[in-house]
Amino acid sequence: MAQDAGRGSGAPRRKVSTLPANFSGAALTRLGEQASQRAEQVNGELAALTYGALVRQLVVDYEDPGEVNVQLERLGYNIGLRLADDFLARSGAPPCRRFVETSEVIARVAFRMYLGVSARVASVAEDGSAYSVVFEENPLADFVEMPTALRDQLWFSNLLCGAIRGALEMVQYVVSVSFVRDVLRGDAYNEIRVALREQRYERAPPDEEL
């Protein structure tokens, strides 16, 4: 993203000036906390090991790590399509009126609710059409050590990208989502980049009486 180049060095900064008052970080974090406490919990280790086994099998089946990334993204996408309603019904998150507002809701509420970790928003594009979700802890990758052969090709947690894409599509934002940094590759933190491609609008129902 050209707009992001040169914006601060080191840890990316958050830009809040465009967000309404009820999007304060602390309030959203609290929402995520509450929602995750209300939900039925799954043992984190079980989830991590199951996910690991799935990725491993995909690597065996598809042989090409690039194809594994695609499959993981697709799996996540189908999860995201369903998760959107689950999230909206149970999180109590404030409605987003513009795309940039989805960033804080995903990072602070959804990540806390579904992954149990907190994430933050970084590198928001000037026009609000792209942002990064940054997080250090990744419960999906708890026990993972990447073999050198895959290290530079496989995005182990690509499922997350798909889930974000699917969920945003349900609220009329067509986005492209990809990993930019991954702790498994030796980066200091995980970073997922979300970019808006198209905003859909509702159409009047077709007139069938004509």
Partner: peptide, 22 residues
């Protein structure tokens, strides 16, 4: 905020439903 948003929608000029979305 609401009208500003409707006007902001890229295709508000030709899409009468843009307002519904925003």
């Amino acid at each position: 905020g609401a009208t500003a948003l409707a006007a902001e929608a890229p295709d508000a000029a030709w899409d009468p439903d843009a307002r519904l979305r925003t």
